[in-house]
Design a protein around this nucleic acid. Structure first.
Lengths: 234, 234
DNA sequence: GGCACGCTCATTGCATGCACTTTTCCGAGA
DNA sequence: TCTCGGAAAAGTGCATGCAATGAGCGTGCC
């Protein structure tokens, strides 16, 4: 890497594919904290051997999305409350840096790309919750990508996914409406405003997201991994 | 996990051992950017099969220390100049957060621990350069560990190693003397001073480290992997 | 009825083997 | 001497097999 690979380096391609699928399943809450991820089932579902599935799990574990314990079935990570707070604190610092670099430099094309996502978020308000969470995450990731700095992109992406997982562990349903309007304001602030203003707005936004998610719910019901992953296995 | 694993999660133990050994070899500049890391040799040196060595390389690639390309021998990553700048920018943000959390809260025992490292740095000034770089890194990692926040620790550690690798790629020899005195001032500022002061000092220190390392050198000479790793293979 | 023990099955840990890709090296031709 | 080609060597990609560990469950004892 040294900053050359996007998300999961090259590493074969199938490993990356599985990682991407699982990441998405997690961020969309199709997979929830604590859900089991046996190597066999994963391999079967994605048409690869355990070897590959295992590698993918290793990567995801390194990203903090999966919990790996010796001789135990891998499970989707269950961030503690403290973890969640720490993650948001780090995310705040990193995204502030993103905004700082972008403030006043956003091209029209870029603003349009961002708006497109927000529009999709708007449309998804009453659709599946998973979709709207994914879109919200994609907004932040796209913002990071616009800095053109591979390493910053990598860290922001990772921390955003972890934040998404944390919200799944503690958050109440998710308030897409707030996200939409806040994201719109954010675009505007980054495009026009001075860096300090934009930075402050990002801080406000992330604080709002974090504090909206204080309470928890999560009624565990039996779900089948193979079914859950069906739509993700290409 | 979600922040529970120290450096490399559990993941077997031998994988972690190899990762640790390689990380250390890299930070001490025994392994330099571009050096080849064939799975066979690694496995042989550490007494495991390629499978394990491969896993370790995957982890290190995820940390940005190793470059992995399909069907090619793994090599120690060679961060670009832009990578190096980005890494230091991120490091700055993260370490500022560390200092912010620690300022005015340092126990005497902790201050002593830190001082012990600085003292070791002092002693190593005229010893091997590798040792003094490693100690300098350990100082920052220990600082992060004192926050007690696993996720912050993980990111700071990773970025410190990447910064070390970047310095190896571009830095001139390394000025241990500056590091020693700056680290001492840092301890004092964190122990007594207000958060802002300590934060500013950390910023100053890291900027100094980064700018001291602008020029590059690195005369490549043929070196043997098996020999290099001998002292790291336990 | 409840609890503890032990057995069986599910699942991981790891090495090995084979196919495929890349690199290297050597010789033929210009 | 330099270049081009091709074959052997080195190395990775991946699946599979076997051993070992842990989980689940039924049985027997209290």
């Amino acid at each position: 890497m040294a900053g050359s690979k996007g998300s999961t380096r090259s590493e074969g391609d199938r490993v990356a594919a599985i990682c991407a699928a699982l990441r998405r399943a997690i961020i969309e809450r199709a997979l929830q904290p604590g859900d089991r991820l046996p190597e066999d089932s994963l391999g079967e579902r994605f048409g690869v051997s355990r070897t590959i599935a295992r590698h993918a799990l290793g990567q995801l574990a390194a990203e903090g999305l999966v919990d790996l314990r010796r001789n135990r079935i891998a499970v989707v990570a269950t961030p503690s409350f403290e973890d969640a707070r720490d993650i948001f604190d780090i995310r705040l610092d990193l995204e502030k840096q993103v905004v700082r670099r972008l403030a006043g430099r956003l091209t029209d094309a870029q603003a349009k790309q961002l708006s497109a996502i927000v529009e999709a978020e708007h449309d998804a308000r009453h659709g599946s919750e998973g979709t709207s969470i994914r879109l919200a995450t994609e907004f932040h990731v796209l913002l990071a990508e616009m800095t053109g700095k591979p390493i910053l992109i990598r860290y922001v992406t990772e921390i955003c996914y972890r934040a998404g997982l944390s919200l799944a562990a503690f958050g109440r349903p998710h308030s897409s409406d707030c996200a939409v309007s806040e994201h719109l304001e954010l675009i505007e602030a980054i495009r026009t405003g001075p860096a300090e203003k934009a930075e402050a707005m990002m801080a406000e936004h992330l604080e709002a997201v974090a504090s909206r998610a204080l309470l928890q719910s999560s009624g565990a019901k039996p779900r089948d991994l193979m079914d859950i992953l069906a739509p993700y296995a290409d």
